[in-house]
């Protein structure tokens, strides 16, 4: 997270030539270290990205071959399609329902898990175990919980004489229900990252604040939160990117329905590419999503990073 900063200001300035040589050597060394990951990235990310861009400019055959060149045709079709605009809306809402909730629930759990009490390992495991659950398993568990006939949630509602809710079949509830599944699943990851950050908060800082007369809340707000702000920011960015790419839980719980209320862009890309076999259209959607995530991440850096304190 401190990549942009100058590292170790040089005290004794060597002569320009020696310095240039040293720089070159350092660059070559860095290049050698980076090479493996560069190769992997080029083969699996950048090359496909370029090919995807090409694909998005064609009407493709059902076998994925390039058919008719249509230029921006796919993009025009998408931007004029209410279904795609709905997907955009749903994707934003989905991120809105999941990311803040994931942090809001993850932080208190991480704080609890950071206490020094007997058997804390048990609690830590309990709070973070969803990290070990695959999204498919999580979705299946929630499918049972949310089932209107045999699920526990609706059973509890009937106990208090409330009408049953079709969690996954009512377009008003489906997105919140899928979001709840996602928050639950991602909670483990959030707790682990935030707990690690909390354990890195220097005791001296907390003690110093206490001596200065700060209460629990004051310590938390003025010392702990700034100290873990890089982790909070990291969780925010990573979960946004992750959530926007959600697929498994939607495929298992709602298949994008009812009435497209959970049809996030990624799911709609899947439907278009691997179900409707319109690879060109799906490629164009993927490009739009790519730009979207880029902009979203950029915005997060521009807006939230100023509150982040790097040590």
């Amino acid at each position: 997270m401190s990549g942009g900063r100058p590292v170790g200001p040089a005290r004794d300035v060597p002569r320009a030539r020696v310095r240039a040589q040293a720089d070159l050597r350092a660059l070559a060394q860095a290049g050698a270290y980076l090479l493996p990951s560069l190769v992997v990235f080029c083969v699996f990310v950048f090359y496909p990205l370029v090919r995807n861009l090409e694909l998005s400019l064609y009407e493709t055959t059902p076998f994925g071959g390039l058919g008719l060149f249509t230029g921006a045709g796919n993009y025009a079709q998408l931007l004029g399609s209410p279904a795609f605009l709905n997907s955009l809306r749903v994707t934003f809402l989905f991120a809105l329902y999941t990311v803040p909730a994931g942090i809001a629930l993850g932080l208190p759990l991480a704080l609890l898990a950071n206490r020094r009490i007997r058997g804390i390992v048990v609690y830590r495991t309990a709070y973070s175990f969803t990290i070990a659950v695959s999204i498919a398993a999580a979705a299946l568990i929630w499918h049972w919980l949310l089932d209107p006939n045999v699920g526990i949630l609706d059973y509890l509602l009937t106990l208090v004489h409330l009408p049953k809710v079709g969690w996954l079949t009512d377009p008003r509830w489906a997105l919140p229900a899928v979001a709840a599944t996602t928050v639950w699943k991602d909670l483990g990851f959030n707790v682990v990252v935030l707990l690690a950050a909390l354990q890195g908060v220097p005791d001296e800082l907390v003690e110093a604040a206490r001596i200065d007369g700060a209460g629990q809340w004051g310590v938390f707000r003025s010392v702990v939160v700034p100290a873990i702000s890089p982790a909070l920011f990291f969780v925010g960015v990573v979960s946004t990117i992750g959530v926007v790419q959600s697929f498994g839980q939607i495929h298992i719980l709602t298949q994008g329905g009812p009435l497209d209320s959970t049809n996030v862009i990624v799911y709609s890309i899947y439907r278009n590419a691997f179900f409707n076999f319109r690879f060109g259209l799906a490629a164009a959607q993927a490009m739009i999503l790519f730009v979207l995530v880029l902009v979203l991440t950029g915005l997060q850096f521009a807006v939230f990073e100023r509150w982040v304190t790097y040590q």
Binding site: V45, L49, Q245
Partner: peptide, 13 residues
């Protein structure tokens, strides 16, 4: 999202 982009390629491969 990158995974989506590469999925077809991956599938081919």
């Amino acid at each position: 999202m990158r995974a989506r982009v590469t999925r077809r390629e991956l599938l081919k491969r």
